[in-house]
Design a protein around this nucleic acid. Sequence first.
DNA 1: ATGCGTGTGTTCTATATTCGAACACATTGT
DNA 2: ACAATGTGTTCGAATATAGAACACACGCAT
Lengths: 234, 234
Amino acid sequence: MTEERAPASQTLSRGIRILEVLADAREPLTIDEIARRLDVHRSVAYRLLRTLEDHGLIARDANGHIALGARMAALAAGVAHDLQAEALPELTDVANELGMTCFLSVLDHDECVTLASVEPRHAVASVAQRPGTRHPVTRGAPGKAILSLVPGASWPSGADAHLRDEVTDAATRGWFESHDEVIPSLRAVAVPLAIRGRGAAAIAVVYLASPHAPAEIAARLARSAGVIRAALGG
Amino acid sequence: MTEERAPASQTLSRGIRILEVLADAREPLTIDEIARRLDVHRSVAYRLLRTLEDHGLIARDANGHIALGARMAALAAGVAHDLQAEALPELTDVANELGMTCFLSVLDHDECVTLASVEPRHAVASVAQRPGTRHPVTRGAPGKAILSLVPGASWPSGADAHLRDEVTDAATRGWFESHDEVIPSLRAVAVPLAIRGRGAAAIAVVYLASPHAPAEIAARLARSAGVIRAALGG
DNA sequence: ATGCGTGTGTTCTATATTCGAACACATTGT
DNA sequence: ACAATGTGTTCGAATATAGAACACACGCAT
């Protein structure tokens, strides 16, 4: 059944799993605890940790406990670097004009990952879409906007017929909205952002209440999406 | 001389170097090019890349070329997670009250890394300190603020006597300023942010010109620093 | 103090894992 | 048609790694 033909590197895979474990854990961990969670011998974890430390990806606090290092953030700055660079000014403009948190999301397998976000002056809440947050792409306006760019055949398994109809319907008008889907009582409006040769993306805003009509918001987002796409030759 | 007794993991180190190479390269690379830059056999790079791909840390564009994947951003969100969470609302307040970009930096070996930044409404420029940017800690106001928290013995090699005097002088008044140090014609004001058991950090603002006196700005920053430190039990 | 539990760092050998060459194939441009 | 470039796969040899075992430091209870 499971056509397991993946000749993966054991050592590298374990090293990455350490990073994943540390990102999940909200607190610094000991070597023993990390080895336990990876289900490897402690001396293995030790060598891997030493290597990660050499590269600055992890750091030890005063107690010797281990957490992700600041250089992880520096590495992540290279993700879709040009897209972020072009999108950020636009996100800022939209956030300030509409008074809403505005953010950029991209597709990552079956999840919707926020790459950058900008808060306006009177942010309703600190529920701000922090960069790096992710949730299933089948939920929320940005997710649906992204799905509208993806060939139906390669949709994730969580997509039912109802979702397909909803997405294809909204795709014709060019924008998407959601309510209570990712964060309770929060609304979102999103437009897809397709760039040549790059994965699907979307820009969106979230808000509690707004003087603007959703269609009006969508029009503003679409304008910025056009600017970004033009800048990247998409 | 160099007591090289670092039993590091070759495989993991090479895998990480791939990520570093991809972060540096502003464009997607081929497997051959990556293997060339790592100076390893292509089949080695291939297996490592396959593993990185399994974990979502890299992705291929339409041409099959390779770039950092969105999940890198998700991983990086775990860096100093609690610090970021506590600092972000404060950064936002400061940015909006002073009308300047406000950001959080931490120490990473001999570099100053920006973890989070917030732009105000009327941002003078999109020179916004993007999260992940880094520069030598010996330059700029945030760097000096961070250095003031570091025992002199463990200062980086780039620190001369002049810098030491400057930092110790400013440390007594509690805040730091710089001009033309990191970005030409830009000024910055920073205050140190020491948190129990965690690495040195600082919050700062950058601006071109300001109606506020530097001391006034510093006082506002210090207030937020106090709030953050209190929240984290530092 | 003594013992106990936990955590870190180091050394060592068998072997599983990785290395690197070679092959097959697709694509692109000359 | 041919070379040039890139990708994916196989395979034996060699080496980097896995995991056990040891030495040590620290905190905490008995």
